[in-house]
Design a protein around this nucleic acid. Sequence first.
DNA 1: AGTGATAATCAGTAATACTGATTATCAGCA
DNA 2: TGCTGATAATCAGTATTACTGATTATCACT
Lengths: 171, 171
Amino acid sequence: MTLKKLDKKPEEAREGELSLSECLLRRPGFLLNKSAIRIKEAYEERLAPLRLAGKHFGVLLVLEEKGSITQHEIGKCVYVDRTTIVGIIDDLEKSGMVERKEHPTDRRSHAVYLTAKGKEALAKAHHLVSAVDKQFFSGLSAKEQKELMRILRKLVVTHYSSTKESERGEG
Amino acid sequence: MTLKKLDKKPEEAREGELSLSECLLRRPGFLLNKSAIRIKEAYEERLAPLRLAGKHFGVLLVLEEKGSITQHEIGKCVYVDRTTIVGIIDDLEKSGMVERKEHPTDRRSHAVYLTAKGKEALAKAHHLVSAVDKQFFSGLSAKEQKELMRILRKLVVTHYSSTKESERGEG
DNA sequence: AGTGATAATCAGTAATACTGATTATCAGCA
DNA sequence: TGCTGATAATCAGTATTACTGATTATCACT
């Protein structure tokens, strides 16, 4: 309907209303996509001083949790393609945060370890992402934040637990 | 948590537990990212027969809601870059679902219209995406689905309503 | 008329992750 | 013991996606 478009006056305030259209706010795909993009941007902005992107942080997290594991296992944890993991580990190794070592029982595999530098960066990163989370969810009540996390978790668990490897997306 | 696949021993059952690591399930960025990817995959799989990707559907939706608007306005609605909109409209025009016409009052702008074919496809698409939504959320209770949508919507509104144009992400 | 801003477009670029092939290794079996 | 199929890591090439910056036409204001 509206073809008046964008003039210049106080319309600009109303432009906000035009921007978020009702039809899209009802679409789960739109909401998930846009919130995922926004939080990712926030993470990467804050993690940039540590030379970490979101994908690197995720890998560091699972290494912290599980200790030394193979690249293949990392890929399964973060649901990232085998070939993509290579690049992520390359990045982290270049910046000295992880090391590839010999696997004790399988010479095909690499055992990936967190270095002292990696642990240090991870400690800082934990603080930074916590701050991002807090800010990102600041428009929600504590109860809403909890509910959102609970429901999203349930959603992800159901969609990723019974998955065949071949069906995986990116990371 | 069963990622059984690979080998055969009972170890492999435990490997499933390894897959969805607790540390990631606590991360809002991970949860949002993975659920966004999954639902996008589902949409695109279902919409493929109509020759529509998610980005096309979003544009058709706002055209349906707002009638003929300019490409610039479409971009603001779906939060997609001006140059990216060109390509999306190109696609839709090639497949005959929209038309670029002269703008009645501004010869710089294009007034983008849904064609009959576009409306037809959109009607089908509505059904398909509804089915996807239903399936995607089938692991949640009705109440949880509603809560999730409500909270996500609140989140997106707060993060996108006061946004300067320059800060936009993709689509 | 002149100046700055805007709408659409295009070319080039960068980031991302995938497919398929390759090498080295492992595990099972004859 | 040696063969065969599967697996881990890797690389090259490709596809997708969206961005930056420049360009052209047009508009709005003075």
